[in-house]
Design a protein around this nucleic acid. Structure first.
Lengths: 199, 199
DNA sequence: CGCCGGAAGTGACAGATGTCACTGCCTGAC
DNA sequence: GTCAGGCAGTGACATCTGTCACTTCCGGCG
């Protein structure tokens, strides 16, 4: 019997996944939590063999939860289930000892089988993410900051004021970002960065 | 026995919700689909009493699906289950005859009860959405089309070529859209429209 | 010390964007 | 008919954006 803790912030999805897992004869859902902190709080009571967790959650995300688990109860397996294909997340998740990484468009009937394979010691990465992790993120933190501000609709002048830089500097740096991303303008750049999970 | 069709683009969530509903003795999940178009394709075979659908989906979203249902099989009830609290979505959904509108952080055990009440003729709106200021959608379909193209990073010239219009026309129309949305530029306009659920 | 490399800034330029006033064209209402 | 209103388009203008060459400043580093 595999003892499972499910962590997911959307209550409806949380309950649905729990009921999906509860259908399997060799699984017991020993607990559910809406975020990483709540999961840690009930960990001692639940004593799960495996944690299924979302990544993007308020309060404490799946990555931080994995880091805590790795330190506190390294025997507990961890499977991430997330919406977007973000290579940065995958890398950090693997570094945190996560043994399974799935997208939410994985067929639901596969989830149980993947959990069993992870419990058997396998490491399973969603194939859609395998090649994604190869593409290096060309952006540095400043690039990301600029793109985020540009994405809000701020002009170069406004961004410059916010970052206490000259407008021309912003213009030049944003221009470099466009080259890095092969974008024709800032809107295109934001779209590309989002799509690649770099933003 | 209530015959239910579930429409949701994330396969894992789709399967999970289906299994959640299948637990109820008075429900039968007669079909599932990953988007609106697929749902329409299997509608005749499934003959559902009620459709549970996500809103944001590729190919055909929940709103368009509701519009088709309203015309083709007006007896079929429709419950929307969506991630974001966007007033525009709610309004358009209600206009399309939707009888239930829930956020995905509704507790999962409530879903079955809400479905039963909708089948009994009630109209149920998630309380978190009730008090949202009901600002009217100022955009027409052309506005939306322009914004979507602008959002991809296309220039006025490119958009003009795509729609077979003069560049100046696009410029003027997009300028009007900016006024309607109180936006300072097209990026801002896209952001505002998205946030309000008008895009 | 001089040299190099990075970050910041400037100036100039072409092209894109946003605003406005104004001209046609068509269509439905009166 | 004609009148108003909507849609498409033009031209002019100011501003913003993207590109490039170049300068300045500063902190290592040999």
């Amino acid at each position: 019997m595999i003892r499972i803790l499910v962590v997911e912030d959307q209550a409806l999805v949380l309950g649905a996944i729990a009921s999906l897992l509860a259908l399997e004869n060799d699984f017991t859902v020993v607990g559910t939590a809406p975020n990483g902190r709540a999961a840690l709080d009930i960990l001692a009571d639940c004593r799960p063999d495996l944690v299924v967790s979302d990544i993007e959650m308020a309060d404490m995300g799946g990555i931080d939860l994995a880091l805590h688990l790795q330190r506190m109860t390294p025997g507990t397996a961890m499977v991430m289930v997330t919406t977007f294909a973000r290579p940065g997340y995958l890398q950090r998740a693997l570094a945190a000892g996560v043994r399974g990484y799935l997208l939410k468009d994985t067929p639901s009937r596969e989830l149980a089988q993947i959990i069993r394979r992870v419990m058997a010691g396998e490491k399973i990465i969603d194939p859609q993410l395998g090649d994604l992790s190869q593409t290096d993120d060309p952006l540095n933190n400043r690039d990301r900051e600029l793109l985020r501000l540009a994405e809000q609709g701020h002009s170069n002048k406004t961004i410059a004021r916010m970052l206490d830089k000259a407008p021309g500097t912003i213009r030049n740096q944003l221009s470099e970002v466009l080259q890095k991303l092969n974008a024709v303008n800032r809107i295109d750049a934001c779209r590309i960065a989002r799509q690649m999970g770099w933003l």
